[in-house]
Design a protein around this nucleic acid. Sequence first.
DNA 1: ATGCAATTTTCACTGGGTGAAAATACACTC
DNA 2: GAGTGTATTTTCACCCAGTGAAAATTGCAT
Lengths: 276, 276
Amino acid sequence: MPDRPATEPVQEIHAQHGQPVLMRALSLLAGFSDKRRSLSLVELSRAAGMPPATALRFLRHFTEWGALERLEDGRYVIGVRLWEIASLAPRGHGIRDIALPYLEDLYEITHQHVLLAVRDGRDAVLIDRLSSKDATEVAYRVGGRLPLPTTAVGRILLAHGSPSLQDEVLASPIDAVPGTAPVSARELRMVLADVRRAGVSTVHRSLPSKTVSVAAPVLGPGAEVVAALSIVMPDKGILEHEVIPAVRTAARAISRDLGYQPATSAAVRHLREAHP
Amino acid sequence: MPDRPATEPVQEIHAQHGQPVLMRALSLLAGFSDKRRSLSLVELSRAAGMPPATALRFLRHFTEWGALERLEDGRYVIGVRLWEIASLAPRGHGIRDIALPYLEDLYEITHQHVLLAVRDGRDAVLIDRLSSKDATEVAYRVGGRLPLPTTAVGRILLAHGSPSLQDEVLASPIDAVPGTAPVSARELRMVLADVRRAGVSTVHRSLPSKTVSVAAPVLGPGAEVVAALSIVMPDKGILEHEVIPAVRTAARAISRDLGYQPATSAAVRHLREAHP
DNA sequence: ATGCAATTTTCACTGGGTGAAAATACACTC
DNA sequence: GAGTGTATTTTCACCCAGTGAAAATTGCAT
């Protein structure tokens, strides 16, 4: 491309020329979302910022391999083959399978929404959700993304994230969420310290209805936080204190099942290192 | 490659030289399975039949994009990003989300295994499964594959598949499954005709325990079979006839929810075409 | 019929892919 | 703690698969 008009800073955000083929191809998949589960060639090529001819070649390869499938009308959808392989993600269905019985216990007791989320980049990703039809409404969908600074699960994951992650998230403006009190970076730092100390995170929200979320961390074998478990229930005053032990207990039970050793004292650890 | 020894018919089954980059890269993902959820560089490169140096380049791109993640020990696993996008597969979680309430109804009534599967190539892929701990044991896992000719769901999907699919499956030798009576291609053809006529498929199995599976087809908007629903229960004689109506009813309810119009007479169809 | 947009094919050009080989890191063994 | 084997990573000269504008084709409104 010899002459590019100096005015426009190039529209295409994704998949610039010069990137490896594979990553440009993968950027096509990013066009899919909850609201757009089937896409046409031009829609995909526009979303990924590449010429239709190029996109078409990729899409054919994806389709032939089974990562995508084609509907009768020519639109593309994610294929079962990809779904099948992706369902092996340890942080996806992997954690889910182990956690499910405990989520059910928690659900059985409270009959409110029960959420399980992991962190991916600057978001929390919802791994599983149990909820009856008559529980309070929430918009979250399995596979969907939640912001870190303004949700109970998000704050758990953020509070136990690396300092560099926290700096990154706190540096960028925190999106105000309708129904929650807006927080400054300064306030959020204090909140996160509280979350770390208390081992739970509580978030009140007044829209679409008055709710409280209570979340607790789930730990992996190395005591690192791998997920966050939460209950979302109607806000009826001080009731929330009663569910905190339940959420923490369930989170701890999942942690144990994941291989975390709760009561590893220094002495025991020493013995274990000596005789592995 | 100028001289290839004429003896070996080339070990590498996948990703031969000459194939498009994208498909070779994707073939790396095929190395993952239920039993091997984390793989090292060489394991992946060997499974895909490509040099480690080449595999490494791909794996880095996958990892950078988020399709794969790297454990502390350097092994690779499927990433949340891929899981997230793949969960948008209409024939994966898409069908699952719609069918789940009906599966729960069926489960509530029978308290036996409830299975939902779609077809991919020459296999059935398990989309969802409900089962209590005390139900009969079955090995099937969500995301796992089942053979078409020897399972109840498989036979539903095969019976309503295209003639070319049936020919293809019947032409290749049918793997004998321990605990089921082996079938010849000739017998299977008759069985499939029965399945089409009756609208259900029943399979008896004596290992690992005596069970009966009863499956029924789930139809999409165009009356095409999109999935199969099944119950697996202990084989205690003639009890199975009682669950057939339940399975068929549930399958029909899911079909309706998917947009299938059960009672579309020729007259109605004509009207609809005239005024779309 | 006519026009417009999406899909697909073509093709000359070229830039990212390729993989053997060497270097490095790592994990055992004696 | 030197030694051996294996896995991971880097390098680099070669070249084949990727590229995308343009034209042809299909599909669908008007």
